[in-house]
Design a protein around this nucleic acid. Structure first.
Lengths: 124, 124
DNA sequence: CAGAGTCAATACGCTTACGAAATAATCCAC
DNA sequence: GTGGATTATTTCGTAAGCGTATTGACTCTG
């Protein structure tokens, strides 16, 4: 049982961020990244209020981040038909592509360091 | 041999970014993160020009990012005594703490998913 | 020691982001 | 329905970011 080490973790982070920066992707803030990840990885539905609470930031900050992410077509807004006060944040193809590139970079770096997932995922 | 899977990679990234955002840390841009990581993980010395080239961004962008990171005491500027045109970017205690929290979050998430480093690091 | 070359930083005009407070739209209790 | 909650957004003034072009400091060549 060999846990991941600090050096590996930081190196992976360094390579992934550096690769994203030097590529064609936009210079997202940490908040925008976090919102994007939440929308794609946590169970739906996502609302402005919910994201603000989860990430411990103000609602206007979420609204503005969504403005940016929407303009980049990384997420999409949709009125909640059950409660028109709510705005549901939905995923897009382009957002999926972005996340996919993220994980590809991540996995490539992890593989290069001999890092492995669980042998038996079902039992985990 | 079980490689890391996309889902694990993205979940780790999601949790780390979300935790940093909801904590007391500043809302660094991806560029600032990348510069910070480069300075701490790649061999010294680091210059504005070198970072700009590595990350494929303009020199003024690096200068501004260093303004921000310096104000936060995450890095420090120092004139190169051998060539006073150069500015060497150096590490700080606070920056080390930041990176340390980063890696702690990362490792905690990786451990929770049964992800492991190489068994025999010397042989890797 | 003069002038070209190289480094980081600054100036400029513009865009984006911030938090607090105010608005607009909607729901719900009564 | 009307009034009070709740949701997201907008407004406001301010701060920070961007790229291009320029400046100021320094080095090095001839």
């Amino acid at each position: 049982m060999a846990r991941i080490q600090t050096q590996d973790a930081l190196e992976i982070w360094c390579e992934v961020t550096s690769n994203i920066v030097s590529g064609d992707w936009p210079d997202l803030t940490l908040r925008q990244q976090a919102i994007l990840m939440q929308v794609y990885l946590k169970p739906q539905p996502h609302t402005v209020r919910g994201l603000a609470k989860t990430l411990n930031i103000t609602k206007p900050a979420v609204t503005r981040a969504l403005d940016t992410l929407s303009a980049l077509d990384l997420v999409r807004r949709k009125k909640d038909p059950n409660d028109l006060r709510n705005v549901l944040i939905q995923r897009t193809v382009k957002g999926s592509v972005f996340l996919s590139e993220f994980s590809d970079l991540f996995i490539r770096q992890a593989d290069a360091r001999g890092i492995e997932g669980p042998e038996n995922r079902a039992a985990a």
